[in-house]
């Protein structure tokens, strides 16, 4: 079958048929020509990569500029004098209590992730293992919450938390983050649990495990990648959350980094160098975590819509 794709005619070994390295099957000229084409693609790829990285390169360069330099007209691409102490000084600026903001982000993210996981794990396990009359409605409900976002419910959430007197607290944001990320966690872990044959669990019971033991020793190790994916994705979503925090957390010490950031941008004067330094700190860990779970993301986010 491969022979067809390696024929010299360019129309058959085209876009849709990524050529594999198989020197020797075609005639002598073809592999070299293909090699040149592949490196050509690399060049195009580099340009694409640059486009996607550009804003973050601007961010990186800006984070090391001095206040004068970043507001200089006309601007320079790179800092003339690399100001590493932006990363130190930003913690004590008058615009916002940044240490508190970082703490907020961390507490809200950890709390939201933990709560989402605790609620999602049993639901994911049970729906993957058992059939019951209300399973479809339940999964549908979960799916619909994925489609809803705090923005559309902002006024309702605001009113609810004011009535409960937990407005302007971390707890409010932990609840919001956990609830709106629950569905991804349920779906991804559900699909992992569903791949473990139920006989494996039954074998563990017959081997003398209690339900708890079979969960801890057999099921959890087997679905661990799914759990990690759920944890990381939820954590990142909480970390980046903006809209609900804006409405629900008016006090500056309670606000997360995403909201605090906007305080540096004034109508007349902006401390861009700090905005970018904070952004670097806000983005780097998240990108690293994200890269770890990339291959499971699509299936979880599209919840069965794409195989």
């Amino acid at each position: 079958m491969r022979e067809l794709a390696t024929e010299p005619s360019p129309s058959t070994s085209g876009v849709l048929d990524p050529p594999k390295t198989e020197a020797g099957t075609g005639n002598a000229a073809t592999p070299r020509k293909r090699d040149r084409k592949r490196w050509g693609l690399t060049v195009v790829g580099s340009v694409v990569a640059l486009v996607f990285l550009a804003p973050y390169l601007i961010m990186l360069s800006g984070a090391f500029k001095s206040r004068q330099e970043i507001l200089k007209v006309p601007p320079e691409y790179l800092p003339g004098d690399w100001k590493f102490d932006n990363f130190v000084n930003m913690w004590g600026t008058p615009e916002t209590p940044l240490p508190d903001n970082l703490l907020s982000t961390v507490v809200i993210s950890l709390g939201g992730t933990l709560l989402a996981l605790l609620a999602a794990l049993p639901a994911a396990y049970y729906t993957a293992r058992h059939s019951f009359r209300l399973k479809l409605p339940f999964m549908l409900l979960v799916l619909i919450t994925q489609m809803l976002q705090p923005t559309v419910l902002a006024s309702g959430l605001f009113r609810e938390f004011v009535s409960l007197e937990i407005n302007d607290t971390w707890l409010a944001m932990i609840l919001v983050n956990a609830a709106f990320n629950l569905s991804f966690a349920v779906w991804i872990m559900h699909s992992f649990f569903a791949t473990v044959p139920k006989e494996i669990e039954e074998a563990a019971w017959l081997d003398g495990c209690s339900r708890g033991q079979s969960m801890r020793r057999i099921m959890l190790p087997l679905v661990w990648p799914g759990i990690v994916t759920a944890i990381i994705f939820t954590f990142i979503a909480c970390w980046n959350e903006f809209a609900a925090s804006l409405i629900l957390l008016p006090t500056d010490t309670n606000q997360p980094l995403t909201v605090a950031l906007t305080r540096f941008i004034g109508q007349y004067e902006s401390a861009w160098q700090y905005v970018f330094a904070i952004s670097i700190i806000g983005i780097l860990p998240v990108v690293a975590l994200f890269a770890m779970i990339e291959k499971h993301l699509v299936s979880g986010l599209t919840a069965g819509g794409v195989k």
Binding site: P197, E199, I200, E202, A203, A204, W205, L206, D207, G208, C209, S210, I218
Partner: peptide, 15 residues
């Protein structure tokens, strides 16, 4: 777990 029975499954169900 309390029946003292061992089982061989069709799909083996190895861990």
């Amino acid at each position: 777990k309390d029946r003292d029975i061992a089982m061989v499954f069709q799909n083996y169900a190895l861990y």
